[in-house]
Amino acid sequence: SRYQRVDEALPPNWEARIDSHGRIFYVDHVNRTTTWQRPTAPPAP
């Protein structure tokens, strides 16, 4: 859903941030990219 819980676990090396307008975006520290779409953790084997 559009309103996912912010405290749900993100994949490793990802961080949720809030911009100056109060919107949540996500930072990938490995690839040094950002996205508005919440990343999903790969399925557990």
Rank of each mutant, 00 (worst) to 15 (best):
S1N: 07
S1I: 13
S1E: 15
R2W: 03
Q4Y: 02
Q4R: 09
Q4T: 15
Q4K: 11
Q4S: 13
V6P: 15
V6R: 13
V6Y: 06
V6E: 13
V6S: 14
V6I: 14
V6M: 15
D7C: 05
D7M: 04
D7W: 03
D7K: 04
D7H: 07
E8I: 04
E8P: 08
E8N: 10
A9M: 14
A9W: 07
A9F: 07
A9P: 11
L10P: 02
L10S: 02
P11T: 03
P11F: 01
P11E: 03
P11C: 01
P11K: 06
P11L: 04
P12Q: 08
N13E: 06
W14M: 07
W14K: 02
E15P: 01
R17T: 02
R17S: 06
R17V: 07
I18V: 12
D19Q: 00
D19L: 00
H21R: 07
H21Q: 15
H21K: 06
H21G: 10
G22P: 00
G22F: 01
G22H: 05
R23M: 09
I24H: 08
I24C: 09
F25Y: 13
Y26Q: 02
V27H: 05
V27E: 07
D28A: 00
D28N: 14
D28E: 00
H29V: 07
H29Y: 09
H29M: 14
V30C: 12
V30T: 12
V30R: 06
V30W: 06
N31S: 13
N31T: 14
N31A: 09
N31D: 04
R32M: 05
R32C: 11
T33I: 15
T34E: 08
T34Y: 03
T34Q: 08
T34H: 09
T35W: 00
T35P: 00
W36M: 09
W36V: 08
W36D: 10
W36K: 10
Q37N: 15
Q37F: 14
Q37S: 11
R38L: 05
R38H: 15
R38P: 08
P39E: 02
T40E: 14
T40A: 13
T40Y: 08
T40G: 11
T40R: 11
A41S: 09
A41C: 12
A41G: 10
P42G: 09
P42Y: 12
P42T: 08
P42L: 08
P43G: 10
P43C: 11
A44G: 10
A44F: 03
